[in-house]
């Protein structure tokens, strides 16, 4: 009996892990392949499968070349600046907007919330043409701010912060009011610290999106010195600056790895901070 139960359990676990591993192969194989190609100092097997899933004459040649033959560090710097700008912008705008929608009674709050949510449905890509013209007027073409500011006011961020603030007990806000806090002080000294997990989730989510934003930066940023990784590395493979495929694969791996490590360390926060959005 005990044996039967044990073996059933082992079989269940085996199936469980088999499913996980199969799916992990599905999600990870492109990165694995890119890594393998990047690590092959000899590119002759690059397109012969399955051989190319294992490096030929492994070495760090191409990874070293990324730094010398490609403006990788410039791209990295640009990605970092733009990602940080976006995170700061999104968090400030979302926190400010989420608080009144969650906790203050005022005329029009429902309408405003519905309008904000409705913007999720609008195809923002259609807005690229007018936004391009607006940016021209604002002299923000080829500027970091021009590439990021359109993402600051995001329905998802406002929604997430509204949900997070709604979960803060009313007593806490009342206590702060009695203690003499203004609404601004309640927001930054009580609501924000108490909702830290949700804000962290929003920050991580925004950072990843900003890091990978491709289309708009590729339109608005005109000089190579301003390009982020997502645009620069793609252009270097397909565009007029096309260089060695092996080197680009190495660059791809180096683009993904920082985000991946970042996510692996923060995923706990990410998941727990999201629960406001899904309840």
């Amino acid at each position: 009996m005990a044996m039967g139960r044990n073996s059933r359990r082992i079989m269940g676990l085996t199936g469980h892990y088999a499913g996980l591993i199969a799916f992990a192969i599905f999600t990870a194989f492109p990165l694995w392949w890119a890594a393998s190609v990047g690590l092959s100092t000899n590119p002759e097997n690059m397109y012969s499968f399955p051989r190319s899933f294992w490096p030929t004459e492994p070495g760090l040649l191409w990874f070293a070349k990324v730094f010398t033959d490609m403006p990788f560090l410039t791209y990295l710097k640009n990605s970092t600046i733009m990602a940080v700008m976006t995170v700061v912008g999104v968090v400030i705008v979302s926190v400010l907007a989420g608080y009144p929608l969650a906790r203050l009674k005022f005329v029009g709050s429902k309408t405003i919330f519905v309008i904000i949510i409705l913007t999720m449905m609008l195809p923002s890509e259609v807005a690229m043409i007018p936004n391009f013209i607006t940016m021209k007027h604002l002299h923000l073409i080829n500027e970091y701010l021009g590439a990021t500011v359109i993402n600051f006011s995001a329905a998802f961020g406002i929604f997430l912060m509204k949900q997070a603030f709604e979960m803060v007990p009313q007593d806490l806000i009342d206590a702060a009011r009695v203690d003499g806090a203004t609404e601004m002080q309640i927001l930054w000294r009580i609501m924000v610290p108490v909702s830290a997990p949700s804000i962290a989730a929003l920050g991580i989510f925004t950072l990843v999106n900003a890091w990978n934003d491709y289309l708009w930066p590729s339109i608005i940023l005109t000089s190579r010195e301003k390009l982020p990784l997502a645009v620069g590395v793609f252009n270097d493979l397909t565009g007029p600056f096309a260089t060695s495929d092996s080197m680009v694969m190495a660059a791809i791996v180096m683009t993904v790895i920082p985000v991946l490590v970042f996510f692996a360390f923060t995923q706990r926060y990410f998941v727990s901070g999201m629960d406001g959005a899904v309840k």
């Binding site: 007990p169 007593d171 806490l172 009342d174 206590a175 702060a176 009011r177 009695v178 203690d179 003499g180 806090a181 000294r189 009580i190 610290p193 108490v194 830290a196």
Partner: peptide
Amino acid sequence: ASKRGIAMVFQSYALYPHMSVYDNMAF
């Protein structure tokens, strides 16, 4: 509320979870 010269003790205590006891009282 803060200018009425009142102080309130809440059912849920409403302590600020991110502040130490000292900071809660000093807020």
